[in-house]
Design a binder for these strands. Structure first.
Length: 144
DNA sequence: CTCGGAAATC
DNA sequence: GATTTCCGAG
């Protein structure tokens, strides 16, 4: 009997949510879909307990920095029961998100990625205001 | 470190 | 279809 994969959820609120729960909402579909990587990343970013391993980058909305790639990979591997998970493998899954338009990469900075909320928010909350700047990036435009 | 193809797995 | 694993190139 194997039971080393117990998902322990923390019903604690960090205190200041950056995102509504639509982002972290687990798959309640009857199809038993496993959690996607970007859901998991958002879940970690939501909690202050993990801010030593991953945290939002101040200045850009949706940008985050992975401080401890090994720790993030370890937690991700625990969730997926993949003890041999590494940042190399995790980042590869992240790289596949580039084509899915879910994630972007901030070049120049190490371990720095950015969520593409133009694609994430629209199908859920098309009325959320990303940035109150006079600049409105079109679909496909750079977010720099 | 970062990118991306390919095979394999679920 | 999404993710994992392996690996060569930059």
């Amino acid at each position: 009997m194997k039971a080393g994969c117990s998902i322990v959820e923390k019903p604690e609120g960090g205190g200041g949510y950056q995102f509504p729960d639509w982002a972290y909402k687990a798959e309640s579909s009857p199809g038993s879909r496993q959690i996607q990587l970007w859901h998991f990343i958002l879940e970690l970013l939501q909690k202050e307990e993990f801010r030593h391993v991953i945290a939002w980058q101040q200045g850009e909305y949706g940008e985050f920095v992975i401080k401890d790639p090994d720790e993030v990979a370890r937690l991700w591997g625990r969730r997926k029961c993949k003890p041999q998970m590494n940042y190399d493998k995790l980042s590869r899954a992240l790289r596949y998100y580039y084509n899915k338009r879910i994630l972007h990469k901030t070049k120049g900075k190490r371990f720095t990625y950015k969520f593409n909320f133009s694609k994430l928010v629209m199908p859920n909350y098309p009325f959320i205001n990303i940035r109150s700047s006079g600049k409105t990036p079109a679909c496909g435009a750079e977010w720099f």
